[in-house]
């Protein structure tokens, strides 16, 4: 078991994990991060074109190991039509 840290946020605010979570290896930590991103999306996703949400995994030495992010792209119908013109 090792302690991994999961920083999360969007483009504007990053919440730094100061406690960490014990995980059984990086594969396990990745699964946790993915589940965390699903929860974060459910709670924090807004109708905001270009909004990006992410979770980043760090190890105990502060080294970044992985980043999971997703972003929202919204396009309104009439806007789409005017883009085509």
């Amino acid at each position: 078991m090792a302690r991994y840290f999961f920083d999360s946020g969007d483009r504007d605010t990053v919440l730094k994990d100061e406690v960490g979570i014990e995980c059984d290896g990086i594969e396990n930590a990745r699964r946790e991060a993915m589940q965390g991103l699903i929860d974060l999306t459910r709670e924090a996703l807004e109708d905001l074109n270009g909004q990006q949400l992410f979770i980043e995994i760090r190890d105990e030495h502060g080294e970044k190991l992985a980043r999971f992010s997703l972003s929202l792209h919204t396009q309104l119908r009439d806007q789409e039509a005017s883009d085509l013109r």
């Binding site: 999961f6 406690v19 589940q35 929860d39 974060l40």
Partner: peptide, 21 residues
């Protein structure tokens, strides 16, 4: 944090984040 996650139906990572908040 895992037990709190299991009580709240959340992932451990999200529990960790919410405690941080």
């Amino acid at each position: 944090q895992t037990a709190l996650a299991d009580a709240l139906g959340l992932s451990t990572v999200h529990v960790n984040r919410v405690l941080q908040e």
